[in-house]
Amino acid sequence: MSDHAAHVPGLAHHFVNMEQQKEAGTIGMWLFLLTEIMFFGGLFLAYTIYRAKYPDGFLQGSHLLSVPLGGLNTVVLIVSSLTMAMAVYYSQLGERKKLLGFLALTLILGSVFLVVKYFEYAEKFQHHLFPAHWMYNPAADHPPTQYHGQVQVFLWIYFMMTGLHALHMIIGIGLLLVIMFMAHKGKFSKQYNSPVELFGLYWHFVDIVWIFLFPLLYLTGYHVGGGH
């Protein structure tokens, strides 16, 4: 009998063995990321259509965003992907301390991203650039008056895309805390480490989304120069 199978740590009772469990987790995570692509896909579609419809508004709108801050965040996220990859690597070697160290680094970098994002958002709110109708009231030169409506469209796309992305970051940090807690408790070993690996997939995905968002939103009008 395979009764002893139930005693393998980390193996849920309904799976036959570790391989099956790991395969299920991996396929599950990839499918989940597929749904995420479709989810963001709707917004990318809206971006494409409105950019074609309002090219000038998008140029003007992108000048409202801070390239240095966006660039900083891009670097932060790319580095966090590296630390996450290292965490996955050490989880597979079963090195608990290094695993925890790299998870902590990832956590710090993720938080830095969100703090920077917070300042970017706060600045927009201060300048009445949040596109809700009762608030949207850009100062006279910023953006040029005749593009108000178009820039408003750009700004809702900006807020919706980056907001959704930030939400994914927040969820990611929550999950990261859980993973760190599990690692701290010594749940992971050479044999059982798929949660770290699967979380790593999620983290990289969120990172990649940002890699698309940064040029599409921040750099769209960069070649035209500051404008003001």
């Binding site: 419809k53 596109p131 809700a132 809702w156």
Partner: peptide, 14 residues
Amino acid sequence: TLQIGIFDPKLGGD
């Protein structure tokens, strides 16, 4: 809720 122009042409949407 925010009256932003996503789908209403009056607000710039489609």
